[in-house]
Amino acid sequence: MTDLHNILIVTAVEGEKEAVEKGLEGDARFTVIAGGAGIASSASRTAKELGKRRFDLVLNMGIGGGFRGKAEIGATVIGCRSVAADLGAETADGFVAIESLGFGTSSYACDPETLEKLQRAIPGAVTGDVLTLSTVTGSAATADHLAQSYPDAVCEAMEGFGAAAAAEAFSVPFAEVRTISNPVGPRDREAWKIKEAFVGLTEAGAKLKEVF
């Protein structure tokens, strides 16, 4: 994967898309789309683009919530894995991941070569698992439970696993990059730093030109 000429970047919303494009400054190697919020929208829109032409890499980029003590507001996160943290079944003994049910996988590893390049380009970034959730965490109890269940998790968002699943279906390498706008836990919109996280996405977008 030395020479990458066609890279698909999937964000959730237009604000994220515009922030990333600002950093890319029109670099023709990158196609950026706003795939919509949630796993299903991200998977379907990513698959639609991959069905049009060949891409060398899929990047899911956007803002997200950071786990306290691991990825604070303003941090940039590089995913090692995209994990569908609520994909499975509830039992009397607690949550059971889909692997234990024999129905598939709840995680996709990010491409190791891309991960290494991103780490070199963004040396201050936090590296760890990014959880994909259909319901964003809104309580300290859920935040603590997720942190205990997924000790390598540094961030939560809503799209990464979907984009990763589409990339896997088309045998295209995948990676995920997030900037942190808020802590995982009780929702306090007044304390969120969305504009600052968008600035972080622009800075990350600029780094991509150097990475590839």
Rank of each mutant, 00 (worst) to 15 (best):
V58H: 12
V130G: 07
I33S: 02
D93Q: 13
G66W: 05
I33W: 01
F67Y: 11
T91Q: 12
Q148M: 06
A143N: 02
T105D: 15
F95E: 03
T132R: 12
G79R: 12
F67A: 09
G36W: 01
Q148F: 04
R68L: 13
T135D: 13
D144T: 00
V136N: 11
E49G: 08
L118W: 05
R54P: 04
I63G: 02
L87Y: 09
D129A: 07
G66A: 08
E90Y: 03
G88P: 08
T137R: 08
R53M: 10
A125I: 05
A92T: 06
A37E: 05
F103R: 15
V83C: 09
A140C: 04
G74I: 00
D93H: 10
E116T: 00
T114F: 12
K48E: 13
T46F: 06
T137I: 03
S134D: 11
G138L: 10
E72F: 05
A43W: 04
T31N: 13
Y108Q: 07
F55T: 04
L133P: 10
E156A: 14
G88N: 05
G94Q: 08
S107D: 10
L101T: 04
L115T: 03
I122P: 15
L87R: 11
L118E: 05
T91G: 03
F95N: 11
P123F: 02
T46Y: 07
P151R: 14
Y150R: 09
L57Y: 05
E99K: 08
Q148W: 07
